[in-house]
Amino acid sequence: MNDMRLTEKVVTETAKITARGVQVHYGTNHALKDVDVDILDKTVTAFIGPSGCGKSTFLRCLNRMNDTVASARVTGRIEMDGQDIYDPRVDPVQLRAKVGMVFQKPNPFPKSIYDNVAYGPKIHGLARGKAELDEIVETSLKKAALWNEVKDRLAAPGTGLSGGQQQRLCIARAVATSPEVLLMDEPCSALDPIATAQVEELIDELRAQFSVVIVTHSMQQAARVSQRTAFFHLGHLVEYGETGHIFTNPTDPRTEAYITGRIG
């Protein structure tokens, strides 16, 4: 963390991820323009903004998921713990084990609940035996606040759970590889209010272990769960700062217009 530019940018605790001058093109479409952000460790950061503003695109840069899109081109510099994640020496597959991701629509694999959670640890060889794997599955499910609901039916298919349970299963699945950062792309948009409340509570608990980045369309949700908020508009990062500050006293007129409901 001895990057000189960092100090002039934000005055805070440790930055987990620093992004400088990040640009993304999908073919001829310039989706993200010159974004600079520091994601703090053990903090929930919310990305808000109208649809198509680039917030999900930026999120997908952080674990190089954009690599799987053939037309995407990412430039600029993104560092995690001082290491450039777009460096040719970095294996994107390894990176994604450290930067977990939860998607908009719950996407459990068509396997048992147990196998869904054990998937990551198995492919990365994290467990040294059946007992250890059982333990990882149990802790992950506990962290995702799902253990009590499914402990008696770990062999049942993950697709048979309710929407909210499925999403928590996906969170448990991501947590099981012990990531350092957890990216969540509108994790509650397919859930009912009760399931949403459970997931939000969970996000707040997860903050104790790693930094969480959440993309959301709900400004109430951003205000409830995050400590820091970034507002994106038309591919630009318009404003980034403490959540309370952004919502009560935005500096940029566009941010104010968005949070008061006049744009977006």
């Binding site: 674990n63 998921m65 799987t68 597959v93 390894q94 990176l95 994604r96 084990a97 450290k98 977990g100 991701m101 939860v102 998607f103 629509k105 996407n107 459990p108 694999f109 068509p110 998937y119 990551g120 492919i123 990365h124 996906c170 699945r173 991501a174 590889t177």
Partner: peptide, 22 residues
């Protein structure tokens, strides 16, 4: 669904692991 592949890639699986296991 592509979302299953994304889920697997997001956990750090390679392409052939994703194909074989998901």
């Amino acid at each position: 669904p592509q979302s299953l592949r994304d889920g697997s890639y997001g956990l750090g699986a390679t392409q052939s692991e994703t194909i074989r296991q998901v």
